[in-house]
Lab assay of single mutants.
Amino acid sequence: GEDLPLPPGWSVDWTMRGRKYYIDHNTNTTHWSHPLESGPSSG
């Protein structure tokens, strides 16, 4: 998808195989999909 801006506290990194993933430092979790690309989340 597009390179959307990341929310505060997020960063992007790549695996050893070159796969892009996103790090949420607020909750110390990692995600394969961009936080703003996922569907609407409630709460």
Score class of each variant (00 low, 15 high):
Gly1Asn: 13
Gly1Glu: 13
Gly1Ile: 13
Gly1Cys: 14
Gly1Trp: 11
Glu2Val: 12
Glu2Lys: 10
Glu2Thr: 13
Glu2Trp: 10
Glu2Ile: 11
Asp3Ser: 11
Asp3Ile: 10
Asp3Thr: 10
Asp3Pro: 08
Asp3Gly: 10
Asp3Glu: 12
Leu4Asn: 08
Leu4Gln: 10
Leu4Asp: 10
Leu4Met: 09
Leu4Gly: 08
Leu4Arg: 10
Leu4Cys: 07
Leu4His: 08
Pro5Phe: 08
Pro5Gln: 08
Pro5Asn: 09
Pro5Lys: 08
Pro5Met: 09
Leu6His: 01
Leu6Glu: 14
Leu6Asp: 09
Leu6Lys: 05
Pro7Phe: 01
Pro7Asp: 01
Pro7Ala: 02
Pro7Gln: 01
Pro7Gly: 01
Pro8Val: 07
Pro8Ala: 10
Pro8Ser: 08
Pro8Phe: 08
Pro8Leu: 08
Pro8Glu: 09
Pro8Gln: 08
Gly9Ala: 02
Trp10His: 00
Trp10Ser: 01
Trp10Leu: 00
Trp10Gln: 00
Trp10Ile: 00
Trp10Lys: 00
Trp10Pro: 00
Ser11Trp: 02
Ser11Gln: 07
Ser11Val: 07
Ser11Ala: 09
Ser11Pro: 01
Ser11Lys: 05
Ser11His: 04
Ser11Thr: 14
Ser11Tyr: 04
Ser11Asn: 04
Ser11Arg: 05
Ser11Cys: 14
Ser11Asp: 06
Val12His: 05
Val12Lys: 05
Val12Trp: 08
Val12Arg: 05
Val12Tyr: 09
Asp13Phe: 09
Asp13Val: 08
Asp13Trp: 10
Trp14Leu: 07
Trp14Ser: 06
Trp14Glu: 07
Trp14Met: 08
Trp14Thr: 08
Trp14Tyr: 15
Trp14Val: 11
Trp14Arg: 09
Thr15Ala: 02
Thr15Arg: 00
Thr15Met: 01
Thr15Ser: 07
Thr15His: 04
Thr15Pro: 03
Thr15Asp: 15
Thr15Val: 02
Met16Lys: 15
Met16Pro: 15
Met16Trp: 14
Met16Gln: 15
Met16Gly: 13
Met16Asp: 15
Arg17Trp: 15
Arg17Lys: 15
Arg17His: 15
Arg17Ser: 15
Gly18Glu: 03
Gly18Ile: 03
Gly18Ala: 02
Gly18Tyr: 04
Gly18Asn: 05
Arg19Ser: 08
Arg19Asp: 15
Arg19Met: 11
Arg19Glu: 15
Arg19Phe: 14
Arg19Thr: 14
Arg19Trp: 11
Lys20Gly: 02
Lys20Asn: 01
Lys20Trp: 03
Lys20Ser: 03
Tyr21Pro: 00
Tyr21Glu: 02
Tyr21Leu: 05
Tyr21Gly: 00
Tyr21Val: 07
Tyr21Ser: 01
Tyr21Phe: 10
Tyr21His: 03
Tyr21Ile: 07
Tyr21Trp: 03
Tyr22Lys: 00
Tyr22Asn: 01
Tyr22Trp: 09
Tyr22Ala: 00
Tyr22Glu: 00
Tyr22Val: 00
Ile23Asp: 00
Ile23Gln: 03
Ile23Trp: 06
Asp24Glu: 02
Asp24Pro: 00
Asp24Lys: 02
Asp24Met: 01
Asp24Gln: 03
Asp24Thr: 00
Asp24Gly: 00
His25Gln: 06
His25Met: 06
His25Lys: 06
His25Asp: 04
His25Asn: 07
His25Pro: 02
His25Ala: 07
Asn26Cys: 10
Asn26Met: 07
Asn26Lys: 07
Asn26Tyr: 06
Asn26Ile: 08
Asn26Ala: 07
Asn26Glu: 06
Asn26Arg: 06
Thr27Asp: 05
Thr27Gly: 03
Thr27Arg: 05
Thr27Asn: 08
Asn28Leu: 06
Asn28Arg: 08
Asn28Thr: 04
Thr29Gly: 01
Thr29Ala: 04
Thr29Pro: 00
Thr29Trp: 02
Thr29Cys: 01
Thr29Asp: 03
Thr30Phe: 15
Thr30Tyr: 15
Thr30Gly: 05
Thr30Val: 15
Thr30Pro: 04
Thr30Leu: 14
Thr30Glu: 06
His31Met: 05
His31Val: 04
His31Arg: 06
His31Thr: 07
His31Pro: 00
His31Glu: 01
His31Asp: 01
His31Gln: 10
Trp32Asn: 04
Trp32Thr: 04
Trp32Leu: 05
Trp32Asp: 05
Trp32Tyr: 07
Ser33Val: 14
Ser33Lys: 14
Ser33Gln: 14
Ser33Glu: 11
Ser33Ala: 12
His34Arg: 05
His34Glu: 02
His34Met: 05
His34Ala: 05
His34Pro: 06
His34Asp: 01
His34Val: 05
Pro35Trp: 03
Pro35Met: 01
Pro35Asn: 02
Pro35His: 02
Pro35Leu: 02
Pro35Ala: 02
Pro35Gln: 02
Leu36Met: 10
Leu36Ile: 07
Leu36Tyr: 09
Leu36Trp: 09
Leu36Thr: 06
Leu36Glu: 06
Leu36Arg: 07
Leu36Lys: 06
Glu37Met: 14
Glu37Lys: 12
Glu37Leu: 14
Glu37Arg: 11
Glu37Val: 14
Glu37Pro: 06
Ser38Asn: 11
Ser38Gln: 13
Ser38Phe: 11
Ser38Met: 14
Ser38Lys: 13
Gly39Thr: 12
Gly39Trp: 12
Gly39Asn: 12
Gly39Pro: 13
Gly39Leu: 13
Gly39Glu: 10
Gly39Asp: 13
Gly39His: 12
Gly39Tyr: 11
Pro40Met: 14
Pro40Asn: 13
Pro40Ser: 13
Pro40Asp: 12
Pro40Gly: 12
Pro40Leu: 12
Pro40Phe: 13
Pro40Cys: 15
Pro40Arg: 08
Ser41Lys: 09
Ser41Leu: 13
Ser41Gln: 12
Ser41Arg: 07
Ser41Ala: 13
Ser41His: 12
Ser42Val: 13
Ser42Gly: 13
Ser42Pro: 11
Ser42Arg: 10
Ser42Gln: 13
Ser42Tyr: 13
Ser42Met: 14
Ser42Trp: 13
Ser42Ala: 14
Gly43Ala: 13
Gly43His: 13
Gly43Thr: 11
